[in-house]
Simulated assay, not measured.
Amino acid sequence: MSIENLSNRHPAVTTRQVKAARALLGWSQGDLSAHSGVSEPTIARLEAEDGPLGGRTETVMKIVHALTQAGIEFLSDNGGGPGVRQARPAASV
């Protein structure tokens, strides 16, 4: 996935969105590390700064991918501010 595609899907994923996503999932920084392949100290460093999630593009992509694979949807700022939600589980047939 290119940076352009990441930007189009998640224009500015923020540290607050990542923290909120972890809270929805009940994940610690260690859990996110295990699911994303990004070291726990790196996650802690990135979450320590408010604003857009910093770091290398590849690192951000790994974090966002892990959270979306776990069912998190990132919501862009549509007048109410950026946010996250858990995707609805697929309906059983």
Results as ranks from 00 to 15, higher is better:
residue 31 D to K: 15
residue 47 E to N: 11
residue 32 L to F: 07
residue 28 S to G: 00
residue 76 S to W: 05
residue 60 V to F: 02
residue 28 S to P: 02
residue 19 K to A: 15
residue 38 V to I: 14
residue 13 V to N: 04
residue 43 I to Y: 02
residue 72 I to L: 04
residue 50 D to N: 07
residue 27 W to T: 07
residue 41 P to R: 08
residue 66 A to S: 14
residue 80 G to S: 11
residue 37 G to S: 03
residue 39 S to R: 15
residue 73 E to P: 00
residue 80 G to Q: 09
residue 54 G to I: 00
residue 89 P to Y: 04
residue 88 R to I: 07
residue 89 P to C: 06
residue 72 I to R: 02
residue 9 R to Q: 15
residue 52 P to C: 02
residue 92 S to P: 05
residue 60 V to E: 05
residue 9 R to N: 13
residue 65 H to G: 13
residue 13 V to G: 04
residue 72 I to E: 01
residue 52 P to V: 13
residue 26 G to P: 12
residue 12 A to T: 10
residue 67 L to V: 09
residue 81 G to V: 09
residue 4 E to D: 14
residue 91 A to C: 00
residue 27 W to P: 07
residue 1 M to G: 14
residue 22 R to W: 01
residue 73 E to Q: 11
residue 36 S to H: 11
residue 68 T to V: 13
residue 21 A to C: 06
residue 44 A to K: 12
residue 63 I to P: 03
residue 44 A to G: 09
residue 76 S to Q: 11
residue 4 E to Y: 13
residue 80 G to W: 04
residue 49 E to W: 06
residue 84 V to H: 07
residue 23 A to M: 07
residue 56 R to M: 10
residue 90 A to D: 04
residue 63 I to K: 09
residue 39 S to E: 10
residue 52 P to S: 10
residue 40 E to G: 02
residue 93 V to Y: 06
residue 57 T to L: 03
residue 87 A to R: 15
residue 92 S to G: 03
residue 59 T to P: 05
residue 26 G to V: 10
residue 3 I to F: 07
residue 91 A to K: 11
residue 54 G to H: 06
residue 18 V to A: 09
residue 51 G to R: 12
residue 88 R to H: 09
residue 54 G to R: 14
residue 21 A to K: 00
